[in-house]
Design a protein around this nucleic acid. Sequence first.
RNA 1: GGCCCGGUGGCAGAGUGGCUAUGCAGAGGACUGCAAAUCCUCGUACAUCGGUUCGAUUCCGGUCCGGGCCUCCA
Length: 471
Amino acid sequence: MSIHLHNTLSRRKEAFAPIDPANVRLYVCGPTVYDLAHIGNARPVVVFDTLYRLLRHVYGDRHVTYVRNITDVEDKIIAAAAANGEPIDALTRRTAVAYHEDMAALNALPPTFEPRATEHIDGMVAMIATLIERGFAYAAEGHVLFNVPSMAEYGRLSGRSLDEMIAGARVEVAPYKKHPADFVLWKPARTGEPGWDSPWGRGRPGWHIECSAMSKALLGETFDIHGGGIDLIFPHHENEIAQSRCAHDGAPLARYWMHNGFVQVNGEKMSKSLGNFFTVRELLEQGHRGEAIRLALLSAHYRQPLDITRDGLGEAKAMLDRFYAALDKAGTGAATAAESAEPPFDHLAALEDDLNTPLALSHLHELLARLNKAGDAGARGVAAAALKRGGALLGLLQQDPAGWLRGTRTLSAGVDAVIVLSDGKIDQLIEARTVARKNRDFAEADRIRSELLQAGVILEDSAAGTTWRRA
RNA sequence: GGCCCGGUGGCAGAGUGGCUAUGCAGAGGACUGCAAAUCCUCGUACAUCGGUUCGAUUCCGGUCCGGGCCUCCA
């Protein structure tokens, strides 16, 4: 089995063959840093992080280059900074830090490179100059525009023709555009706005050009996979393709295009403009742990729409409780064995088949059942190692099991919303209960149990003694 | 209006031209002082109407319903 991926360009699943197996190259559109990331923004991060982990497994950790940019110059940033009365660089720095914290909570690995648009202005200016020189772009009233009709294949990715786009156009056409579909490569900066000197006057780049310039700088003219949310197909990715191909003698930008479906709320797209979003940070502060959020995001196939609900997050949490409880009983030996274990075959096969995470998870459940049924320590160790190794491909199950089960839900700023009893107090109460049970004073034993339960602590008696976990 | 996706058991969610998805919830049982956890068993689902086929939830077409893109958006 080799990796197969659904390619938006062909609208079908294709066998994946990298240009250079020694350097598999992946580019994913990252955040515009003007506000906290909502759960919809987190989905592509988690999805492509999972792809990154799979590619690293198949081609080797050192043979995959993953680029995810940060857009730190853009109209919304300017607007948000003005609204906050905050300097632009303070806003973007603060937001980028929060983004990193939130994505780390979801157990997303840092990308190989995380370029910022403002670090690549020169490359953008150079690319724009090339496009003008070759007749694909023109300057008008301080703007530089890409001339869409000059690109024969424009519309291929999104599967629409220029005529259709004009027919459906709902936007007012700026008077300086030669063609209604032309889009901005460079726009003038007004006083007080961030700007860079250029042959067309002081200004700043349009949104699309930054990805073209940054991917070229870090991955070359043609690379393997370009990913992002489904809403980026048009116009963003279509425009990236137009810019890059026209600047690069027609060389393809990326060979495989992958797009994740939306996170929805009550069946509707979650988006900032609709106002129906919640941020990753809010969920964490409500006590949902990052790994549960990650699992919820992986519980549907990446191209399907996904509703994130309280029930769904609760189910993900319960699922992790089961996994970690089994791993906890398997002991620490399994953790070390997992280092050298191969991921379970059918689990890997599911991921190689266009990142079928729900199917992969079902195989993890099979391993869980095997682990729970394992008779001896040897069989337990093997099953636990396989489970942990499989989880690693999904970015799950890597925590200390006891830490997960009994862990506090301490969040940012040391705030702890849930813990009422300290671990020491819990142990004390359990000891008292054990004594009561020995004396067959079950009324007292049950009173202590229910006292603990009210504090969110669940007891489990076994031949080996009493263990506990937090609900 | 144009172009795309989808409609699977109470819920979530894979998949398949004929054979058990899986998880959650629920029912029964084993175990347990009680409980929890675990294990065993169970419910026979694929919007609708036609077509192709020996056979369709799975392929094709129509209908209905939902979502998305066409404008910033993951």
